[in-house]
């Protein structure tokens, strides 16, 4: 079964997963060597081996728009459409950060905002380094939290257009989401309390001084 047939079959099954990536980019992936050679007949299990070897995040690069292996595997994930539990296992992987990044991308593309926000926001507390490949072929270093933030706040990332999400506060207003609790929240509250205490002490000292003067 060739790629186009499989794609049509998925469309027929209400999958529509692969159409999440624009057609121009999709065709580039289908025609690239990595897709034909390494991604043929992958399942959710065998895909893990390939994903372990990833060394950068990105979509396409150079003038002709060569696909990065990361994008090929993302397409494969969209094609095989694995269970949610498998994706969550991918997210949890601690040794291989690029698998987490892959799962993050997949969740951003396929889930509803209600589920995507909390799952991706877990990575706001994660400051592991990842190598990314820009559209012009150059490399850069980002951190996981930066990637998570960009996924949630921007509409286009690496030239892939992401499904539109409502802003977080609107979902909070509708009661679909709980307010986000940052890891730093406790620290901030403690600081505020300390500041209040210090201010109170200063006020008391001033009062005492004034009392003495009078």
């Amino acid at each position: 079964m060739d790629d186009e047939q499989q794609e049509k079959q998925h469309l027929a099954n209400d999958g529509r997963q692969m159409t999440l990536i624009d057609q121009i980019i999709r065709n580039k992936v289908f025609n690239c060597r990595y897709w034909k050679e390494d991604c043929f007949g992958l399942t959710a299990v065998t895909l893990v081996d390939k994903a372990c070897k990833l060394d950068c995040v990105g979509a396409t690069y150079s003038g002709t728009g060569k696909p990065v292996p990361f994008l090929c595997l993302l397409m494969k994930l969209l094609q095989i459409n694995p269970d949610k539990e498998i994706i969550i296992e991918f997210l949890k992987s601690k040794d291989y950060k690029y698998i987490s990044a892959l799962a993050m991308f997949y969740i951003r593309l396929t889930s509803k905002p209600k589920e995507a926000y909390p799952t991706i926001e877990q990575f706001y507390a994660d400051f592991r380094k990842i190598r990314i490949r820009n559209l012009d072929g150059t490399f850069a270093i980002w951190h996981m939290d930066e990637l998570a933030e960009k996924l949630l706040s921007e509409e286009i990332i690496f030239g892939i257009s992401l499904p539109r999400f409502q802003k977080r506060w609107i979902l909070e207003e509708l009661g679909q989401l709980e307010p986000r609790k940052s890891v730093l929240e406790e620290e901030l509250q403690n600081q505020e309390q300390e500041q209040v205490q210090v201010a109170e002490q200063q006020n008391q000292e001033k009062d005492q001084e004034q009392g003495q003067e009078q």
Binding site: D55, A125, R128, K129, A140, I141, D145, E146, S182, L184
Partner: peptide, 19 residues
Amino acid sequence: LNDEDTLDETEYALWKIRE
């Protein structure tokens, strides 16, 4: 570009600023 994680204090401080 080295993407090995050092997870030291400077990294933590930078992350804290971003957060």
